[in-house]
Design a protein around this nucleic acid. Structure first.
Lengths: 188, 188
DNA sequence: TCCGACATGTAACCGGTTACATGATTCT
DNA sequence: AGAATCATGTAACCGGTTACATGTCGGA
């Protein structure tokens, strides 16, 4: 049910249309919760009919009209309720780890290029996060009234950065292991 | 579709029943891919009827009979095919991160206990991984024929260890941030 | 004229979760 | 007698994915 709550958070940060939400889920929010536009439109409709959201038809020049959603009172209450109830610490699902273990029954060396692909994807994401951090969280830090939202967004981003760094280091470890296996027994 | 492949890997490592697989998914394999017994029984049945697995009824003393599954030729081929095709680098889904961002619109201090709960869960998992590592991957390392399966299992476990350590450090960071927000503006 | 960005949707499918159900055996 | 472990399942639901579908507007 976290998609609903992710949408509530995103709309509290800034109201927007389904399309705009979909874009945000490709960026900031999507760093730790993904959703496609189909899913988002479906859930927005349900949330609106449940009274969690309000819609406003907005005419635009040079663009199609859009429906701007914002959080209604019950939506805010629902978020608050969720924040106060515990969620289970989730376990990761890492398909690549399955592959790595599976490689023992196939060709370990054949996995090198796949691991390298993943390493690159994570390095790209890290670079993206770091540039976002530079853009949004450095420079003339508003010194007096520290904005809780900003601080917490930054804390989450630091988590993403730490995750990508850790993953890259681990994939280097995996590559070294695959290399060792490849050279140790060249005949077999 | 990774559940099928996780099952193939697990059964190649050692044949077993649905029940045994479910237990493994609570342990080693489950560290990076989870599945409940209902799911496993359903998929085992399908995989068997697809010819990927073989079943053998095994009578046991003092216990109910079980169906021992093992990987058939086509199953091994399917795994090999999967290992050679790229999988998309997946993005994480971290519900707690949604909560952290959402806390800005509610009570940041109220999240402390939840974050601490998660920190403890990850610390427990880390301890569990480390004891597994000590048990399975240290001591009299077979020095001559390094076993590819063992090496790769260890590499995956090191990934789990790195993940838990990173997460614990991040949650400490989050706790420090929440604390800062709580003390900085005691009146608001 | 065609492409890309903006904007919103439907339909079918499938994988995963939750709840329910049964029954044997061993240990306390 | 009751709890725990071993063992295997069915059914309903729901969230997420993939494919398909439509239409506007601005710029190359």
């Amino acid at each position: 049910m976290a998609l609903e709550h992710a949408i509530l958070v995103s709309l509290l940060e800034k109201p927007g249309s389904g399309y705009e939400l979909a874009r945000r889920f490709e960026r900031s929010i999507g760093y730790f919760w993904t959703a496609t536009h189909q899913q988002i439109y479906r859930v927005l409709k349900r949330m609106e009919s449940d009274g969690l959201l309000e819609v406003r038809e907005v005419a635009q020049q040079g663009r199609p009209d859009k429906k701007e959603y914002s959080v209604a009172g019950p939506g805010r209450a629902a978020l608050s309720r969720w924040l106060h109830e515990p969620v289970e610490p989730e376990s990761i699902r890492h398909e690549l780890a399955v592959k790595i273990r599976g490689a023992a029954f196939d060709d370990p060396a054949g996995l090198v290029s796949e691991v390298e692909r993943h390493r690159k994807a994570h390095a790209d994401r890290l670079a993206h996060y770091l540039s976002g951090e530079r853009r949004d969280f450095t420079g003339p830090e508003a010194p007096l009234p520290l904005d809780a939202g900003r601080e917490l967004q930054h804390a989450v981003l630091r988590g993403g950065i730490a995750y990508e760094r850790m993953t890259i280091a681990w994939l280097d470890d995996v590559l070294a292991t695959l290399h060792r296996l490849g050279t140790a027994r060249p005949g077999i």
